[in-house]
Amino acid sequence: MDDRFFEREYNPYESDASLMESKSRHADFADISVNICGIAMKNPVMAASGTFGFGEEYAGLYDISRLGAVVTKGLTLERRCGNPPPRIYETPAGILNSIGLENPGVEGFIRWEWPRLCRSGIPVIANIDGDNANDYYRMARRLSELDGLAAIEANISCPNVEKGGMAFGQHPESAYEAIKAVREGTNLPVIAKLSPNVTDIRQIAEAAVNAGADAISLINTLQGMAIDIHKKKPVFHRTFAGLSGPAVKPVALRMVWEVFEAVRVPIIGMGGIASWQDAVEFMLAGASAVAVGTANFIDPFAPLKIISGLKKYLIGQGIRALNEIIGSAH
């Protein structure tokens, strides 16, 4: 139920002033468990889709069941090979990526990844991405047959594919259509993952909720690009790519803030979260949980440090439960 024992191994921010302060406070326990539309998580820190594979890759470093939940790499109906390299390009405090949804397909996932994942002792959220509404429906339906899957995250925001993906997430009507299809295909909680590449994120969030989304995830990557000055050509084959990492955090935070004011469903905040301080900001802005993405690449222990930092922050503030701070900056 809590992970206070894990703190010993990591000394992330021992010297941080706000934590030193905590030693003099009375509280020594804070409840950081959360329940997001029926997904019971022992802490609010998830691994973001596409940055954690199917959970196996980081299992050599720590027990992944210490996380609140894991979101799978984006799945499509059929297996996909992804985009030709280069797929990664470093930018100041960020990364551009153009992976292109390389994945084993829903059936491949069920056959090769799920048997192991379902025993990991942690809520698993399947991220799905369709070319059309019917894809979303069929994937949601098929995945609902799995015993123990915690939720479906409908990715209507991938910027790196030919069809579907972000195109769904850029208009309220198409967002509604995609989420509606997922909703019709499953009784599991449905999370809509939104794209930041829109004029008004609130309209998209509202459409997703109207279509039956139980929660909102945001943000996916911001569309960007890079040019090779020697070849005088774009770095990426698809010209545009998705920007993630600490560079996008202020944008993500603003969007969580906006969506919190627009809809009533829980928000899973993500976009450049690399420290517990970042996570606290997102929660104060209205996120009930957070997902760590790019930061995993820089410091694989980042999610664990965030969990322990969050807890220490609450204790230091004399706050007994995480719920008390969600959206409290408004």
Partner: peptide, 23 residues
Amino acid sequence: EQRMACGVGACLGCAVKSSGGGY
């Protein structure tokens, strides 16, 4: 050698073309 992000196989960033198809 390939541009790489995670280094552990999670991000699929360092793709190299496989003769068996895909990466």
